[in-house]
Simulated scan of single mutants.
Amino acid sequence: MDAELTRRHWQGHDYDGDFHMYDGKLPIVATGMKHLQEHGPAGAVVRRFGRPHHQTLIEAIGNPRREAYDARKQAEYAARRREHQQEVRCIAAQHRAEREARRPVCVGCGTRFTDERWKAIEPAGWGARWETHPHLCENCKQRAITTER
């Protein structure tokens, strides 16, 4: 039998029982005029060595179980990625909420400090200018300075 003599050229290797890996192998297919006349060239007229039934040419040279395996793995990866992104968004939201909870409030008017004002009252090192009214927002600070003069 021709298929047995050429087995090492076309037989795939089992991959975890999910599909056969055909890397480095040749898909050897055969058909007959009788099948071509009955079903036409687009019909299930081709027999691939190692497969039990006739297929279309595209099916015979393809590896549908591997394609299904790859699609399943891609879907799993996409699901894990979406899950991870959701976790990252939740952590970022939690960090933003914690930061906002730490944001100083003006003792004069009760408004929360802007990012710029918050940064201005933070200690910046030995050479930094000393903030005269660290518990007041910018507007209340300006009023306090004007009142002091």
Rank of each mutant, 00 (worst) to 15 (best):
M1Y: 12
D2T: 14
E4V: 11
E4L: 13
L5K: 13
T6L: 15
T6E: 11
R7Q: 08
R8M: 13
R8C: 14
H9Y: 15
H9T: 13
Q11D: 08
D14L: 05
D14S: 08
D14M: 07
D14F: 03
D14W: 04
G17T: 02
G17C: 04
D18A: 15
D18V: 15
D18H: 15
F19W: 14
F19A: 14
F19P: 08
M21D: 15
Y22P: 07
Y22W: 10
D23G: 15
D23Q: 14
I28V: 12
G32I: 02
K34W: 02
K34E: 07
K34A: 06
L36T: 02
E38C: 04
H39C: 05
P41Y: 07
P41D: 07
A44D: 13
V45T: 03
V46L: 14
V46I: 15
R47Y: 08
R51G: 10
H53E: 13
Q55I: 05
Q55H: 12
T56N: 03
L57C: 07
I58E: 13
I58Y: 12
E59G: 07
A60H: 02
A60Q: 04
A60M: 04
I61V: 14
G62F: 06
N63K: 01
R65W: 10
R65V: 10
R66Q: 10
Y69N: 09
D70T: 08
D70L: 12
A71F: 06
A71H: 07
K73L: 14
Q74P: 03
A75V: 06
E76Q: 06
Y77T: 10
Y77I: 08
A78F: 05
A78T: 06
R81Q: 11
R81D: 09
H84M: 09
H84Q: 09
H84D: 09
Q85K: 07
Q86E: 15
Q86G: 11
Q86R: 14
E87N: 10
E87T: 12
E87K: 11
R89I: 04
R89E: 08
R89L: 08
I91R: 12
I91E: 13
I91C: 09
A92V: 05
A92L: 06
Q94F: 11
R96M: 03
A97F: 06
E98I: 06
E98M: 10
R99S: 11
R99D: 09
R99M: 12
R99T: 13
R103K: 03
P104L: 01
P104M: 01
P104W: 00
V105I: 07
V105C: 05
C106Q: 01
C106R: 02
C109Y: 02
C109P: 03
G110V: 04
G110Y: 03
G110P: 04
T111V: 14
T111C: 12
T111Y: 07
T114P: 00
D115M: 06
E116T: 08
R117E: 00
W118H: 01
K119M: 10
I121V: 13
I121G: 01
I121K: 02
I121D: 00
P123T: 03
A124H: 11
A124Y: 05
G127L: 08
T132I: 11
H133M: 09
H135E: 14
L136W: 02
C137R: 00
E138S: 05
C140S: 01
K141W: 12
K141Q: 14
A144S: 03
I145Y: 03
I145E: 09
T146M: 11
T146I: 10
T146R: 13
E148D: 09
E148A: 14
R149T: 11
R149V: 09
